[in-house]
Computed example of a mutant assay.
Amino acid sequence: MRHVTMEKLFVHPIVQKYVGRSGMAHAIAVAEKAVDIAIKKNVNPDLAAKAGLLHDIGHYKWYQNGEWNFELYKENDIHAIKGAERAHKLLVRCEENLQDAKEVALAILLHTDSYLPEGELQLRPLQQIVAEADTADEEVGGAHHYRQIDYDIALKRIRDLDAKIESLMLANENDEQKN
């Protein structure tokens, strides 16, 4: 059973504030892509969706005069560190399973290597999925952070994603019971 739905996260004031600032349209697209990739890789689609939605929740510092400053972001990026902490705190407060909250936070922490020293990390499947989904939705110059989405359309897409996740998890439970 899911402890926290995508809709519960989406309507939360913290998500509206911080994810809204960094691009809600991008966040929803990444969540949707993450679920599709998770299905192919046999990874928990619920955790993939949550990490996808929240992956940029740490971007709040890169605004100047109400405008997204892509150059400032590229030069000083640590959004994944702040985002992992903020997402973990939010999920725990929403009563998410503690291990799941940790997995989502780690996927957010490692969805980008822009703040890490040169070298390669061995990412786990959920972490790879979020990074792949984010990259698939990126646009030149950070334009993906500027895309707008109407609240009602966003909420419908979130509800559709919740329904898809519920259906996938129910099918998985039925498969497990048969075996």
Rank of each mutant, 00 (worst) to 15 (best):
I57W: 00
K50L: 07
Y73G: 12
R157K: 13
D150P: 01
R124C: 00
D137Y: 00
R93E: 15
K41G: 03
H12V: 07
K33E: 15
L53D: 09
K50P: 00
L91H: 03
D162Q: 10
A87C: 03
V11G: 01
S114R: 15
A34W: 02
V11M: 08
G52V: 13
Q64H: 07
N44K: 11
A136V: 00
L110T: 03
Y63P: 00
D160H: 11
E176K: 14
V130Q: 01
V43E: 07
Q122C: 11
D36S: 10
L155R: 15
V92D: 03
R159G: 06
V140F: 12
A27G: 05
I78Y: 06
R157G: 12
N97D: 15
E132Y: 04
A51P: 05
E32L: 09
N76D: 12
N174Q: 14
N44E: 11
V92I: 15
A171G: 05
I129C: 04
E75K: 15
K17A: 12
Y115G: 09
V4D: 13
A51K: 04
Q99N: 08
Q127P: 03
A25D: 09
L161H: 08
I81H: 10
A143E: 13
E139F: 10
A49W: 02
D137K: 08
L116G: 01
M1Y: 03
M169N: 13
I57N: 04
E139C: 10
V35C: 09
D77R: 00
R21P: 00
V130H: 01
Q128G: 01
G119L: 06
R93S: 12
A87N: 04
V130I: 12
Y18E: 13
Y146R: 15
I57L: 10
L9E: 10
D175F: 14
L161K: 05
I14R: 07
E132V: 01
I78M: 06
E176D: 11
V11F: 07
